[in-house]
Amino acid sequence: MNSKTYTYPSVVTIAGFDGSGGAGIQADMKTISALGCYATSALTALPVQNTTGVKSIFSIPEKVVEEQLETILEDIFPDAVKIGMVHTSALVKTIVEKLSPYPKLPVVFDPVMVATSGDQLIEEETIQTIVQELFPIANVITPNLDEAEILANMKIETVEEMKIAGKKIMQLGCQSVLLKGGHLKTQQLTSLYFLPDGSMKSFEFPKYKTNNTHGSGCTLSSAIASYLAQGKSLLAAVSLGQEYIHQAIYHGKNVKIGKGNGPVNHFFNPQKLIKNEMDR
């Protein structure tokens, strides 16, 4: 008699490495685990970095990424996908090819182009491939203002300019866009979510004086993917994901880890793995 009657909602993260543990796949797996989901992963690149910045980046061959994805998908099929650092056109095509057969699988794409430290992490010629091939399969993309400026081809210094940029990015073929306003020089943090139906929702949070925001974009996108894996609606997942990263920053704001931009506190309120009942 088979006694296996439940499973866990799982999220696969397709992203780069961070040996210092605050960003990339490490941050993704911490976030997914803290929110009660089961984390699997496929490594796309090996940046050599710490809290002070990126020293160098070593590529992972596309064939290796392809085989990683195939191996995970055939064994622990995910309930949602988070995509982070994809820094070559060939890698974009590989990922899209592997995910395209599953159009109902929720995909969250964090277009990692610029690190918290200001280092550019992506090859210029890759951006067009991302727009043409990866944007259409992503349910939501989560650019920060540096990335949004690249995608919208404009400076963004106000909330009104965020609204203009968000609409421009939506016209690139996105299903929905969460434009993060953390880099604005304002007293509060404003993010704008452009929904599939053409409407827009604004989210506002207080800002904290802290350098501990390393990996905050990776963490937010993984949180959204985790809530989607749990069956939340797109709007609910985006809202809950932002609340999670806001609290993770708050609970890690006074911690000293590293000499640069420290990590957030992923485990401020860890959840037990959530049981999904299986058909007997």
Score class of each variant (00 low, 15 high):
residue 167 K to F: 07
residue 133 E to F: 12
residue 191 S to Q: 13
residue 182 G to K: 02
residue 178 L to N: 01
residue 175 Q to I: 11
residue 191 S to A: 12
residue 169 I to S: 01
residue 149 E to W: 07
residue 188 Q to F: 05
residue 206 P to R: 11
residue 217 G to W: 00
residue 188 Q to G: 08
residue 155 K to L: 13
residue 136 P to W: 11
residue 194 F to Y: 09
residue 210 T to Q: 03
residue 189 L to R: 04
residue 161 E to G: 01
residue 197 D to S: 07
residue 224 I to G: 04
residue 165 A to Y: 00
residue 209 K to S: 10
residue 185 K to H: 14
residue 162 M to W: 00
residue 176 S to V: 03
residue 203 F to Y: 15
residue 201 K to H: 14
residue 154 M to T: 14
residue 230 Q to G: 06
residue 192 L to R: 01
residue 133 E to G: 10
residue 187 Q to Y: 10
residue 231 G to V: 01
residue 225 A to N: 02
residue 146 D to Y: 07
residue 233 S to P: 10
residue 183 H to C: 06
residue 164 I to V: 14
residue 194 F to I: 08
residue 209 K to C: 03
residue 195 L to G: 06
residue 195 L to S: 14
residue 181 G to C: 04
residue 191 S to E: 09
residue 158 T to N: 02
residue 173 G to F: 12
residue 146 D to R: 11
residue 210 T to I: 01
residue 197 D to V: 07
residue 180 K to M: 06
residue 229 A to L: 05
residue 202 S to W: 11
residue 156 I to L: 09
residue 162 M to Y: 02
residue 201 K to C: 11
residue 193 Y to H: 12
residue 134 L to Y: 05
residue 221 S to T: 12
residue 216 S to A: 15
residue 194 F to V: 05
residue 195 L to D: 13
residue 213 T to V: 14
residue 140 V to I: 12
residue 217 G to N: 07
residue 177 V to Q: 00
residue 183 H to T: 08
residue 202 S to Y: 12
residue 223 A to P: 09
residue 140 V to W: 00
residue 188 Q to R: 13
residue 192 L to V: 03
residue 177 V to P: 00
residue 174 C to R: 00
residue 138 A to P: 03
residue 161 E to W: 01
residue 166 G to T: 08
residue 149 E to K: 13
residue 147 E to H: 12
residue 220 L to C: 04
residue 205 F to Y: 14
residue 134 L to F: 14
residue 184 L to S: 05
residue 231 G to Y: 00
residue 184 L to N: 04
residue 140 V to M: 06
residue 214 H to C: 05
residue 169 I to N: 02
residue 216 S to F: 07
residue 142 T to H: 13
residue 192 L to Y: 00
residue 212 N to L: 11
residue 217 G to H: 03
residue 208 Y to L: 11
residue 139 N to A: 13
residue 150 I to F: 05
residue 222 S to I: 00
residue 207 K to W: 05
residue 137 I to D: 03
residue 222 S to G: 04
residue 229 A to M: 05
residue 229 A to S: 13
residue 172 L to N: 13
residue 172 L to F: 10
residue 162 M to F: 06
residue 214 H to E: 06
residue 158 T to S: 06
residue 167 K to H: 10
residue 164 I to R: 10
residue 212 N to P: 11
residue 167 K to L: 13
residue 171 Q to W: 12
residue 143 P to Q: 11
residue 147 E to W: 03
residue 182 G to N: 03
residue 199 S to C: 12
residue 223 A to F: 07
residue 137 I to V: 14
residue 216 S to E: 10
residue 207 K to V: 06
residue 186 T to W: 11
residue 151 L to Y: 06
residue 204 E to Q: 15
residue 184 L to A: 09
residue 146 D to T: 12
residue 208 Y to I: 08
residue 225 A to P: 02
